[in-house]
């Protein structure tokens, strides 16, 4: 049980790190907000600067919550995909969820030709992206009911995803310049555009998705020794697959719909977590992955805001720059990738 104590220490330090970066994340930006304004009830100046309060509640706290949800959701769906496909390079997007969402957004932005302004346009994009992701998920479930080999499902997912991307390219080619720019900006990913009703919708989709993921833990553990062995343990393989696909689609689908595609978090975070806690048991790995995903997403958000400047970089670029070295390291460290 000495291992358990080590695990508790690691998780505790990760949580501390999360709190520290969380506070740092909302304090930096074009306006520096002092520490005493961040923590209400701190002795000293009792009055919070009203301007700071507005910045915090209107922009930075929603942005932080979005980062936390996106980090947790993408990392967990990546972990689920890597486990069920027994492939370290699988991520939340291998099944074409992100391509489905992108196609939805592309249809809303490029296909309709009409560019509605303001809130309506935003809801249109989010809804269309959501429908796109959900359609891909339903198709995938139909495939799962008929095809037994998990590797065949993986290959079909990748092919599916590529063909959707091809359709998007065609639409981009014919889209007008303004719509094209909106689409490109959407596809760069942003954590800053989710607030108000959007945010509560994101909360109410990501939380059930994470709960579903918790229910897949036992089945995924059994599948680590192969699906056939899991079957002899009484595990209903089809049920676990459906649980995992639904959970992943909800998690990756909603985050993509609201924030655009955010790359590499889903692939890299599970590996970083495995390295950090040194365990593969899902009962430990999945909760740790949630916290690690939040930490890394908050760090990416801070970097994207370029502290000290008034410019903001696309978050997708930052997560890729953090994630790609991890993926390269995984590939080099174990040349034998266990695809079979």
């Amino acid at each position: 049980m000495r291992e358990n104590r080590g695990f508790i220490w690691k998780i505790a330090s990760l949580l501390l790190l999360l709190i520290a970066f969380g506070i740092l994340d909302i304090s930096i930006g074009t306006v520096q907000i002092p520490f005493r304004d961040l923590v209400p009830g701190l002795p000293g100046d009792s009055e919070i600067n009203p301007q700071h309060r507005l910045i915090l509640t209107g922009f930075r706290i929603p942005r932080l919550i979005t980062a936390l949800l996106a980090g947790a959701a993408l990392s967990v769906s990546g972990l689920q995909m890597q486990t069920i496909f027994r492939n370290p390079l699988a991520g939340p997007y291998v099944l074409g969820i992100s391509s489905g969402a992108s196609l939805g957004a592309a249809i809303a932005l490029l296909g309709t030709g009409a560019i509605a302004s303001g809130m309506l346009a935003r809801w249109g994009i989010v809804t269309a992206a959501w429908i796109g992701a959900a359609t891909v998920m339903l198709l995938l479930l139909l495939v799962t009911l008929r095809i037994r080999s998990i590797m065949t499902i993986l290959i079909l997912g990748i092919m599916f995803s590529s063909s959707l991307s091809a359709i998007i390219s065609i639409m981009q080619y014919f889209g007008n310049a303004v719509a094209l720019k909106s689409f490109v900006i959407w596809s760069m990913g942003s954590l800053g555009d989710v607030s108000g009703k959007d945010l509560s919708l994101l909360v109410f989709t990501v939380i059930p998705g994470l709960i579903l993921a918790l229910f897949s833990v036992k089945g995924l553990n059994a599948m680590m020794m192969g699906e056939e062995y899991a079957g002899t343990l009484g595990v209903n393989i089809l049920f676990v697959r459906i649980l995992v696909f639904v959970s992943t689609s909800i998690l990756a689908g909603s985050v993509t719909a609201f924030c655009g595609p955010i790359g590499f978090i889903g692939i890299a975070v599970p590996h970083i977590t495995r390295l950090f806690i040194g365990r593969s048991e899902m009962r430990y790995l999945l909760p740790s992955t949630i916290v690690m995903g939040m930490v890394i997403m908050v760090i990416s958000d801070m970097v994207s805001q370029l502290p000290g400047s008034d410019r903001i970089l696309p978050v997708n670029a930052i997560t890729s720059l953090i994630g790609i070295p991890v993926v390269i390291w995984v590939v080099i460290r174990r040349r034998k990738l266990y695809v079979d």
């Binding site: 036992k218 680590m224 192969g226 595990v235 593969s280 009962r283």
Partner: peptide, 25 residues
Amino acid sequence: LKTPENLTVFETVSLGRHPYTNWWG
């Protein structure tokens, strides 16, 4: 049977208890 990385002997053998444990394992 596959040999997953990072799984200890105890954790591996504990998979055998699967039919007897609750939803969380």
